[in-house]
């Protein structure tokens, strides 16, 4: 088992088959169980070093990778933001990656340019894990999201999904939609303002995979789905602030809206949220986003373990 994972790059969720992702989830189950019992018996990645190259600011993703690496016994090196690094002196990405490749056994990269992770993987001999490349991919977030759906429903396929918010520039939303091409949803509703429609390549991927999807309004889908995946709509995407104020109310989930929801409904959000999920939702049985966030560490531990072979 897991032979296909050893030394592997993680660039896009589409690089993985359903079988491989299920293998990852089983590993995450084991890790999670061990963590619940107070930690892993042994330190499978003792002596390994993970580089965290966060050219863009990040708290959650960087810290959960760091926690994951350390809990497995690996050390971490790295930086957040280009300040104080050689990048600020004008070093290109290729040279920075070569340097990290010489120091570490695995590189996690976040960078604002789309394709930066693939480019880094072509340069580095060490496996490269994409921690977010511009608006394009955030594959480990998608792994965590799918894992959480599986935990809530016992399966990922055959469910009714809605993805809400910024489907154009949001990489978590894009990766989640792409992930659904691997696990056949029964139905997929896309809820977005016209400016934030999913990108052409994401729509073609859904079409090619034969996913049944359609655009819908939030109010009308809440009672029709098992998973409501909510993302943030950023103010910066709207040139006109009034337009933003007008739009954002239609993409806001409140507890009272969930009254007509299926019992099985789980609300997910990659976090951080602003007010697209009202705090009144937090105390409902549908709120799964904090559990989703907690799955960040065990899923990333499972991933590092499979890739570095602990």
């Amino acid at each position: 088992m897991a032979s296909g994972w050893r030394g592997r790059d993680v660039i896009s969720i589409l690089d993985f088959t359903r079988g491989e992702l299920e293998e990852l989830f089983l590993e995450a189950d084991k890790v999670k169980m061990a963590l619940r019992r107070g930690g892993l018996q042994r330190r499978p990645l003792e002596g390994k070093l993970v580089a965290l190259a966060f050219f863009e600011p990040s708290t959650r993703t960087r810290m959960s990778f760091e926690a994951a690496a350390k809990r497995l016994g690996a050390g971490t090196i790295g930086f957040t933001g280009p300040e104080g690094t050689s990048v600020e002196k004008g070093e290109n990405l290729a040279d920075t990656i070569r340097m990290l490749d010489a120091y570490a056994d695995l590189i996690v990269i976040r960078h604002r340019y789309e394709g930066s992770a693939l480019y880094a993987a072509e340069i580095a001999e060490a496996p490269v894990v994409n921690g977010g490349d511009g608006r394009q991919h955030h594959p480990t977030q998608a792994m965590i999201d799918l894992y959480t759906v599986r935990e809530a429903h016992g399966r990922v396929e055959g469910l009714d999904y809605a993805v809400v918010g910024d489907l154009r520039y949001g990489r978590a939303a894009a990766s989640f939609m792409l992930a659904l091409t691997i696990f056949r949803p029964r139905r997929l509703y896309l809820v977005y303002p016209p400016q934030l429609a999913p990108r052409r390549e994401v729509v073609s991927a859904l079409e090619r995979a034969g996913v049944r999807f359609e655009r819908a309004e939030l109010e009308e889908v809440i009672g029709e789905v098992d998973v409501l995946y909510v993302t943030r709509i950023q103010r910066e995407r709207f040139p006109d602030p009034e337009e933003y104020e007008r739009v954002r109310g239609s993409y806001r989930v409140t507890a009272s809206m969930l009254e007509g929801a299926r019992d099985s409904l789980v609300v997910l959000h990659p976090l951080p949220r602003v007010d697209e999920i009202d705090h009144s939702v937090d105390s409902t049985r549908h709120a799964w986003y904090f559990r989703q966030a907690r799955n960040g560490v065990p899923v990333r531990m499972a991933l590092l373990k499979l890739i570095l072979g602990g």
Partner: peptide
């Protein structure tokens, strides 16, 4: 414009 192939100084 934010594709890595458009980033100045990268040999890609």
């Amino acid at each position: 414009p934010t594709c890595i192939t458009r980033k100045p100084g990268e040999p890609v």
